[in-house]
Design a protein around this nucleic acid. Structure first.
Lengths: 194, 194
DNA sequence: TCCGACATATATCGGACTGATATAACGATT
DNA sequence: AATCGTTATATCAGTCCGATATATGTCGGA
């Protein structure tokens, strides 16, 4: 799924600026299973405009840089829906420097190992917080993504959010139950082979 | 973490060809939390050779294309260890087309939703299988990654593998418990708004 | 028995994407 | 007053993926 398709999907929830779209992938609805950087979002929106799949209105704000508020066209909506039906989803891919580094725990000081595990836990704690739609700090947020016109959360979004939450919980539980054991093992390991 | 560092890490477990390194990221020890394609591995190995961090021996095999078996140099080992101690790990990133698509479950036929969920489950089942080091089909595999010289699995690797397993289990459990509920909700949703 | 599919093995390259940087103005914290 | 973070758009160098090419062997099925 290229960034153009991702942008179309993001705009299915209503109008948004490029900056707001990035936030959906950074903090918002999509944050735990997709990413897109500004460096790809802006060119994508330009291309989509040229292709007639989105339009934008320029909002001049006082004492602020201009805003381009993008919106799906009918053809954009149709194109996205068609893509949904036709696309074979690519393989899931999870990248984690921390887990890669922990693979070599024997080769580093135990304090570093512990710090890496703690950071991993902290990030998942944060993620778990970001996923929960009720727990969001933004009460009167302008665009309530993942909800329909009446403000009801959409079943698909709930399912995906729940799944993310379950993954986070499992991760945190595993760390709670196995961190100390690993550190002990490493101490033994190092005592045997200095 | 760039592919060069990833290759150095892969070679910490012993000598390997470029093709074998890719397999570690495709099927092997690193498969559930890092990826690297051949298109980046081969240039990386060339660069590492130029920089003196790895060396290779060309094995001519009968009736087979030549093999370049790479190995860390002492400087390569030192460089990797230094990188381990100095690198701030990048953010974890998880990309899933399937979860993105499921976000729009309301917009597609229920059969497609179910097929996507089933595929998601199947992939995680497979991954769970790949992670388990005891369960590996390759009994006399040439290089036993993740183990020390005596064949004992390394604590760091076990921890990371266990974590991966826990995530898979949680995912599969969530799907078992929530798939039917989602499909029912979607049917209601569609009945109300045709 | 032949054919296609798959595995081993290296190499290259176009196109897509990330991450950094530039610009600009404001509020908040130090 | 100075630095930092936030809103907002835009560009670009460098990195990486995915596809493709090349060469050869094995294995299962029609």
């Amino acid at each position: 799924m290229d960034v153009r398709t991702l942008c179309l999907g993001a705009l299915m929830g209503g109008e948004a600026t490029g900056y707001e779209i990035r936030k959906m992938f950074e903090d918002g609805t999509f944050s735990h299973f997709q990413i897109a950087s500004l460096g790809s979002i802006y060119p994508a929106l330009t291309k989509l405009t040229q292709d007639g799949l989105v339009t934008f209105v320029e909002h001049e704000q006082e004492n602020r840089p201009d805003k381009k508020v993008y919106q799906l066209t009918q053809e954009g909506r149709r194109t996205f829906l068609r893509t949904l039906l036709q696309t074979r989803p690519a393989e899931d891919r999870y990248r984690s420097d921390i887990l890669f580094m922990l693979t070599f725990a024997e080769e580093m000081p135990i304090e570093l190992t512990e710090a890496l595990i703690d950071e991993f836990a902290a990030r998942h704690e944060l993620m778990s917080h970001q996923i929960d739609p009720d727990n969001e700090d933004k009460q009167g947020s302008p665009s309530t993504y993942g909800r329909d016109e009446n403000g009801n959360p959409k079943p698909g979004c709930c399912f995906v959010a729940g799944l993310g939450q379950a993954m986070c919980d499992a991760t945190l539980k595993f760390i709670r139950e196995n961190k100390q054991g690993l550190l002990d093992e490493l101490r033994n390991f190092k005592a045997r082979k200095p």
